[in-house]
């Protein structure tokens, strides 16, 4: 076993297996009949088989050449990964906050923070842009929604 199994790959396969397992269990628990499992059962079996194949292929792969090894290490230690994860977490919080604190406030704060995190320069440009963008979204995009939309300020 010479191949490397990176943490993000392991996490992805783990998530796929966990979610697939849960959906399969829930479907079988609801009703174990052909009409209910016609897609779930074969798909679950194929997913399990493919996951085993992928893990085995990765672990049994011949040792990477020095250049490949360095590229792989660089990807694994990519400093941008933490920035991406922070942005993802921020995006998740923003999505959750839309209907909690108001679409306007959540959008303003997210866009401001996002511009700064993505390298936007200046201390006044990012909040000014975020305010204008939020107003445009609320009065433009939001006015087309056929649903009520919670706002705090606008």
């Amino acid at each position: 076993m010479t191949g490397k199994f990176y943490a993000t790959h392991a996490a992805l396969i783990g998530i796929i297996l966990a979610i697939s397992g849960f959906i399969t269990w829930s479907a079988v628990d609801a009703r174990a009949s052909l009409d209910n499992l016609v897609v779930v059962a074969p798909v679950a079996s194929v997913i399990a088989l493919l996951a085993v194949i992928l893990v085995a292929v990765t672990l049994l792969k011949p040792a990477p050449t020095p250049a490949e090894g360095e590229a792989g290490e660089a990807q694994a230690k990519d400093p941008g990964i933490w920035g991406d994860m922070l942005m993802l977490a921020g995006f998740g919080v923003f999505c959750y906050a839309l209907t909690k604190v108001g679409f306007d406030l959540a959008t303003f704060l997210f866009v401001w923070a996002g511009v700064v995190m993505s390298g936007g320069k200046g201390w006044w440009q990012p909040p000014l842009y975020a305010a204008i963008f939020t107003a445009a979204l609320v009065y433009g995009f939001g006015s087309l929604f056929p649903y009520p939309m919670l706002t705090l300020v606008l």
């Binding site: 839309l98 997210f110 866009v111 511009v115 995190m117 995009f141």
Partner: peptide
Amino acid sequence: PLSYLVPSVLAMCAWGGYG
């Protein structure tokens, strides 16, 4: 510039999901 485009489009994506 992507520093402005990325958060703006991300915000629109979330709004689109609500829409």
